[in-house]
Design a binder for these strands. Structure first.
Lengths: 339, 339
DNA sequence: ACAGGTTACGAAAACGTTATAGTTTTAATA
DNA sequence: TATTAAAACTATAACGTTTTCGTAACCTGT
């Protein structure tokens, strides 16, 4: 790479001091107009840009924020990242992204790395393995140092930091209620193992809806998907046990897989079985029939998280941690019956 | 945020010089074992980490690479990023991601920003708008400065930089040939406007396959999708003009949309119409029937791009730009007839 | 007791910038 | 012509490291 041009080199060229060049480039009128313009022209010609490392070291801020997400090949998380990116860019920050790949160790490493002064703050969502392990010391260390941190979606309620989540319970409740109100009586739940907090919350909403409508809660109608095995087979087992007339799944993939299983077994959707998913991505939109889903506004979530973080970073006084709860809405398409 | 502990503070604590502390923490035996251990213990206790900005400024390398992609909510691009992340992390680098959102201006800004010393090198894929505008001066500036640059997927053949692409022509040719060999005679193409290079290349492969099998090339069977309008309607128009018995689409979304349109018009897949898509994402896998696709190995592409970049960054001599062409393979599922 | 070597540490420059506090030069005033 | 103020520029410290070189103090053997 061609060596970069620096203040020093420009200074030598004009036989003036570095400070003069610095000021000239800042268009300070401490420097004569004549010299100023010459220096500026020269700098432009050689495409001078202040070395960002030096500037950051000097200003004691990086204008970079770190993002730790479990996965990026994932509609919801990538939408969140897009939201984060939008806000941070508008406000003059850049984004450094690390993936935990749902691994505890990698998450710890990422967090460790980010605290060496390379970022001004962090936005994170907890990996599945960490949730299973229930070990949050790496986050707690951050908070002890008052490191600006915003958690989103997969959070830990105990942390005293900014949080942005969606109202999983209500979302699931609305979805389940909608199934009930359109005539379903035997509603299955396809969810994650209970240690995934959002799965647990959505299950809670599902149960609540059943109870408030006076329906029986039947564990035979529930599947906790083990992702290490075939999703399809696990759903087929549900059908073998007990054929539902409605299915609420906690994500797109489970929902569409359930729909496909139902179809293969000869059931019509939504006539025989209604299906509702969670997260409104292309999978839901392109499914046949298009899937009714709980839309969780990932883009908004990312934007909100970024706003919270930058506000915290830029504020002088310390502000109370906030918790923003985003409500979901039900996007009704063709996989459920009309009222 | 709690002020970070520095060498200076540790030095003051022990009433020794900064150099001593620095060496002690590096376990240099220039420092007496006794003092060394005391300093190390102290540093550990206070969770000392070298300020990465200072280290980077000193070493004149950031150990960060920049990535500029058109979009992140996109299976292929996110797979590439995952590949990049894997390699860079293994080799001790971090990734800074910027999105161009398919916009020329944002792409230029991103590139500009990255050349202020914040990254050691760049991996990029060109935005659609840039391809339309055909203005590549921002990339050319980089190359003039010998800035380490690797382009992937959406590249410009004229640049003398490392490139990683897939063999779009062959991929499309194989897909089309497969349609022909399984009995299709009237094969439609659903592609992008011609200025999107990968679209153009895939069209080329489609045409080549037709010709080599002695089939007529019929523009009536081609759709260049304008994404500003409804994809579905544009494909419906194709059916109104001329009903195909095979469809080759240049991406997942077009393929599944085509399949849905065909289904709604009462055609059976694959009995009446076979469909092949491009990119093997969840949309293809979860479609009903599961979609036969050209798999473009995004993860591998990301890994290769990262390897090329880091090799270039770390090598002393300048190395010749390389062009890696990844071959695709056809994943045969249920949307095409068996031979 | 003293050259010679070893051990243990410190000083200072360097990375590229910014900002504060001078200092010199020029011009204006009495 | 001496005084003063304004204009134009410089020196320096600072951000937090790393690294090369230098130098005390101590020990060893003769």
């Amino acid at each position: 790479m061609r060596p970069k041009i620096t203040l020093k080199k420009i200074a030598k060229e004009f036989e003036v001091s570095i400070s003069t060049v610095s000021k000239a480039l800042k268009d300070s009128n401490e420097i004569s107009k004549d010299l100023r313009e010459k220096i500026q022209a020269f700098a432009k010609l050689y495409n001078y840009k202040p070395n960002s490392l030096a500037v950051r070291l000097q200003n004691q801020q990086t204008k970079v924020i770190g993002v730790v997400v479990p996965d990026i090949v994932h509609h919801f998380f990538s939408m969140v990242i897009r939201g984060i990116e939008e806000v941070t860019n508008q406000r003059g920050y850049n984004v450094m992204i690390c993936l935990s790949n749902e691994s505890f160790d990698k998450e710890v490493m990422n967090i460790e790395m980010f605290t060496n002064g390379s970022v001004d703050g962090l936005i994170a969502s907890i990996s599945k393995e960490t949730q299973k392990k229930n070990d949050y010391s790496h986050f707690k260390n951050l908070l002890e140092d008052d490191f600006p941190l915003v958690m989103f979606d997969r959070i830990n309620e105990d942390f005293s930091c900014d949080k942005v989540i969606i109202d999983d319970v209500s979302g699931a409740m609305n979805a389940t209620s909608h199934l009930i109100e359109t005539g379903c009586k035997k509603i299955a739940l396809v969810t994650t193992p209970n240690e995934i907090t959002v799965g647990a919350l959505r299950k809670k909403g599902y149960v609540k809806a059943l109870q408030s409508h006076g329906l029986e809660v039947d564990t035979n109608l529930m599947v906790e998907v083990n992702e290490k095995q075939s999703i399809q087979e696990q759903i087929e087992e549900l059908f073998d046990r007990n054929v539902p007339d409605g299915i609420f799944a906690v994500n797109e993939v489970y929902a569409v897989t359930a729909m496909n299983v139902a179809r293969e077994k000869g059931y019509k959707i939504p006539e025989d079985i209604s299906v509702i998913g969670f997260t409104d991505g292309p999978i839901s939109q392109l499914a046949l029939p298009p899937l009714t889903t709980v839309v969780q506004h990932g883009f908004t979530m990312g934007k909100q998280a970024a706003e919270l973080l930058l506000d915290r970073i830029e504020s002088k006084e310390d502000i109370q941690p906030q918790k923003i709860v985003l409500s979901t809405n039900l996007k009704i398409r063709k996989s459920t019956k009309s009222v």
